[in-house]
Nucleic acid binder design. Structure first.
Lengths: 132, 132
DNA sequence: GGTAGACCTTCCCATAATGGTAAGGTCAAG
DNA sequence: CTTGACCTTACCATTATGGGAAGGTCTACC
């Protein structure tokens, strides 16, 4: 299987497959005589694992750890759970921050007349003026 | 006022003040004979505007637009409201995505025994195995 | 006057993860 | 044997931020 097919089957772009290989996240595959990378079902499986972890918001570095745990038969599942748990906490912090931004912005938009007058509470707020 | 004080008063690092100047977000300030940048209250005001916009999650490019609208006396506040509204929509999409991730991860953590057995539903899920 | 330490200057490099492009080799179908 | 789709490497760009080096300046104190 060429890199194009592996990409299609895994959902990881060819560009990223080469990148993951370069940074050592995946092991270099075999090559044909003409230097083409050759992938088998196992490699695609690994790529799909990576794709899924990335989609769930794990960084490449975290993904590398998870991949190591996946491939280590003597792993402790508690370790995996801890990684996932702290990841959840980080995501929730991020969500809270974003919700704070949305709340502020919604308040401002609600107060903004939206016509052509230059009195804009959004800009006033950004400029640090006290709310009217 | 030197860049250090301007940084302290605005909450924007000296490094970033120079960067904002370099990319044209702010106009170059006056210099002393010894080539030090000199800032006054107006400049700090602008920097605080920028800081606030960045904190609210606007990109530097969006911030530039807002800054332009702020400084343009003939601006239409509807334009500002539109920028804020589409920004809210983008934030809410992001929040939804993150919440989806949290939900999935929480489910997995809940199912994960967390002991030392190598049967880990989180890894199984990442690997694409059907849920038990 | 001299010196130490805190500040400033510019320039270069690094990050995380991804995309783009260019120049060239290869393969399969017609 | 040509055409087009694919592959290869190598380099550059992105966003916003920080780090560091090498050197100039200013202030406070002796």
């Amino acid at each position: 299987m060429n890199i194009g097919q592996a990409s299609e089957k895994s959902g990881v772009s060819a560009k990223m497959i080469r990148y993951y290989e370069q940074i050592g996240l995946i092991t270099p595959p075999l090559r044909t005589d003409s230097n083409y990378r050759v992938y088998g079902p196992d490699e695609v499986h690994v790529l799909r694992f990576i794709k899924r972890a990335r989609t769930l918001g794990f960084s490449v570095e975290e993904t590398a750890t998870l991949l190591g745990l996946w491939q280590d038969r003597s792993r402790a599942s508690g370790e995996v759970r801890d990684i996932a748990s702290s990841h959840i906490a980080a995501l929730e912090t991020k969500i809270d921050e974003l919700q704070g931004m949305v709340k502020t912005l919604k308040h401002l938009v609600h107060c903004c007349a939206g016509d052509n007058r230059p009195d804009c509470p959004i800009l006033d707020d950004l400029a640090g003026k006290p709310a009217h």
